[in-house]
């Protein structure tokens, strides 16, 4: 099987300038997503998951700056595109679902119009045709009674419905790459399951590549082909989902799994992760940003971080992996 990467992020570094110093938020991050593949970015708050997505989409906060790297997508480097060219890609080829659908949708515009806007701007639809196309999109995301719902404002819909509207907007122009940033946080588990199934089916139908950002490892394992584990702006491990669950190799991945409540464990069996994220403003950040928290630290860990390939599509950045 020769997989074609839809997106290849290489050597991506991002800094944020703040009053109290420069924060090295991403440090030489690299991963790829194939056509039709779903890859999860997982990690605790502050690990750099969302910043990675924002950098790829070109929507970083003005204080943030890409200091190195490329994001190859359809033969072009997204990070080098002009704002105009990038705006053409976004919406059509590149799409994003945000964490909180209620704040991401326009509160004073009917949801049908919001879908139509995207179709007209990027999908080549004409204004008269767009309302009908919007109803079609609502059907695709399985919203009951779509003819009536296109007339609704976001506040009239439940959280799960709003998230389906977001998905309809994101998928309206059949993008080649979808970035979903915690799309089900704050939704009920039953709704979460339906939304995740839906994203999976739509991705499968159209061969869309998906980056799924989450802090829920079990959710990532269920719905993603591969998992990329991030810690303090580094990718510490990347592996097929099932393999990561069965045999995590980076000490941080293993700790993260051990802290996740699952099927059989009792509370006593769950272990917390000692320490916290290092201060990313420190000028003397260690090569391995996990080393201060790590129980397996060696003298070698002060050397530049290795990038070891230890199996089929399985890499780990650690001198002393499990």
């Amino acid at each position: 099987m020769t997989a074609v990467p839809a997106l290849a992020v290489e050597d991506l570094s991002v800094e944020f300038r703040t009053r109290s110093g420069t924060v090295k938020v991403l440090d030489h991050v690299g991963f790829s997503v194939d056509k039709g593949e779903t890859v999860a970015l997982v990690g605790e708050s502050g690990s750099g998951k969302s910043v990675t997505a924002f950098a790829v989409m070109g929507i970083l906060d003005p204080a943030g700056r890409v200091t190195s790297g490329r994001a190859l997508f359809g033969g072009a480097d997204l990070l080098a595109l002009s704002e105009h060219d990038l705006a053409e890609q976004r919406g059509r080829e590149l799409s994003m679902i945000f964490q909180n659908p209620r704040t991401a949708l326009n509160p004073i515009r009917k949801v049908g119009q919001q879908i139509a806007d995207v179709l007209v701007r990027h999908g080549g639809a004409t204004r008269p045709d767009a309302p009908r196309a919007a109803v079609e999109m609502l059907k695709r995301v399985r919203i009951p009674d779509p003819e009536r719902r296109v007339e609704a404002y976001p506040f009239e819909l439940s959280g799960g419905m709003c998230q389906r509207i977001m998905i309809a907007i994101a998928l309206a122009c059949r993008p080649a790459l979808l970035i979903a940033d915690e799309p089900t946080t704050g939704l009920d588990v039953t709704t979460q399951a339906v939304i995740m199934d839906l994203i999976g089916e739509l991705a499968h139908e159209s061969g869309m590549a998906t980056i799924f950002i989450t802090h829920d490892l079990a959710l990532a394992a269920e719905y993603c082909d591969r998992i990329v584990v991030m810690h303090a702006g580094h990718i510490v491990e990347a592996a097929p989902a099932r393999e990561l669950f069965a045999h995590p190799r980076h000490p941080y991945s293993a700790k993260l799994l051990a802290a996740t409540p699952g099927e059989t464990v009792s509370l006593a069996e769950l272990a917390s992760i000692p320490g916290g994220l290092p201060d990313l403003r420190r000028p003397d950040l260690p090569a391995c940003r996990y080393s201060d928290r790590c129980e397996r630290r060696l003298d070698d860990c002060a050397r530049p971080l290795p990038h070891r390939v230890i199996g089929e599509r399985h890499t780990v950045s650690c001198w002393n992996p499990l």
């Binding site: 399985r142 009951p144 439940s158 419905m161 009920d188 588990v189 039953t190 979460q192 399951a193 339906v194 199934d197 829920d216 490892l217 079990a218 959710l219 394992a221 269920e222 719905y223 989902a241 099932r242 669950f245 699952g262 099927e263």
Partner: peptide
């Protein structure tokens, strides 16, 4: 509700119940 708990192990995903409608 229980079917909707994310399940890392694919063997345990059989016979799940998904709700439709509101």
């Amino acid at each position: 509700l229980i079917s909707a708990i994310p399940q890392a192990d694919p063997d345990k995903r059989v016979g799940r119940l998904r709700l439709s409608g509101e």
